[in-house]
Design a protein around this nucleic acid. Structure first.
Lengths: 187, 187
DNA sequence: ACAATATCTAAACGAGCGTTTAGATAAAAT
DNA sequence: ATTTTATCTAAACGCTCGTTTAGATATTGT
């Protein structure tokens, strides 16, 4: 046998993820990744195949990073209040460490919306639809809501979440919290 | 004297604008612009200096394109209803010709938010602040609203508009109209 | 008709991109 | 200790980017 890797793959993916998250896919170059990850291009390519593979791995890591929040959301029993809490949880993580990067999934969804990369688009779409189905579930907990109202409110909330991710990059946490309060005022 | 230009500058800027609008600044290459505008690189450079100059000209053209909508908005006397109508006007233009490109200014604002281009950032910011001051004006038409409520609602609407531009790229017109209805339900 | 010159085409520039390759280095197995 | 082989460094690949240049083309004023 021969020598072992001098880096931990999860650790360097975490660093890559943060760079992709901040800059998006296209605006992140291999040179920047090399520097941020602290390893050589060769090592990146032998570990992840190519830039695209590294990006997929970063997305996977992000998903596992937010899975706890998602499980908490899924298991809640307080209807609309759970959705609101999920929104708060989502943005609070964005403002840790002063990083105004929005939601990685939503950012990616936006960046790839006019792209031909079917694999990533499908992943993003399925993630969004998963979110939507949970939101619908929560809204349905209120028996006074008819099916049409539930669907419209679910779309409303998804769009709001969508906009929130973009807004998180250029607004203060206080502004965003006010926005969430207002969003849930009439639900 | 010598020969005259075989193209109209406003016409080719319009085409450039549509390409920048659809793809953003970075994702639009000079080759694509050459093809779309129907003129040679040399002509682009001699008319607009460089890619950045052409982009600024495109932004200018966009602003003059939406100025009618903005004037109508400014001159309205129906308070919140004017804002709602402005939102409808803004998105209806986006869905003409099947182009789901969102708002060019907001897209640019987002793309350049982590950029070092001060000139463009300032232009975008002043445009947004101009919009905000009009929104505040409209909200203040309702004498029952205190100053704090006005400011929070203005931020809420700006963020909603912000999200709307992103959402317009991946949602149907109907979904967006439902979203607007919901947004204005409790104002 | 001719000279002057702005506009055209098309090729080339250097820089940076994602990716690959060649060779030095180092650690595990015998 | 030597062989084996995965991992390292660093240079180079071909391509596209934004930009510039050289020379052909065409139109205007005399």
């Amino acid at each position: 046998m021969a020598r072992k890797k001098q880096y931990n793959e999860d650790e360097v993916v975490e660093k890559a993820m943060n760079l992709f998250w901040k800059n998006g896919y296209e605006a992140t170059s291999m040179q920047m990744l090399e520097k941020e990850m602290g390893i050589n291009k060769f090592s990146i390519y032998s570990s992840f195949g190519n830039k695209h593979g590294l990006f997929l791995e970063s997305l996977k890591q992000y998903k596992s990073k937010v899975s706890a929040t998602l499980v908490k959301f899924k298991n809640g029993t307080n209807g609309v209040e759970d959705i609101k809490q999920f929104f708060y949880d989502s943005i609070s993580s964005n403002f840790k460490l002063g990083n105004q990067k929005g939601c990685f999934v939503t950012n990616t969804y936006n960046e790839f919306s006019e792209n031909e990369d079917q694999l990533i688009k499908e992943q993003m779409t399925s993630f969004m639809e998963n979110l939507k189905s949970i939101i619908i579930e929560k809204l349905e907990m209120d028996p006074s809501k008819d099916e049409d109202t539930v669907l419209k409110q679910a779309n409303y909330l998804l769009l709001a979440k969508h906009g929130l991710a973009a807004a998180a990059r250029v607004n203060t946490q206080q502004e965003i919290e006010d926005y969430i309060e207002m969003t849930f005022k009439n639900l």
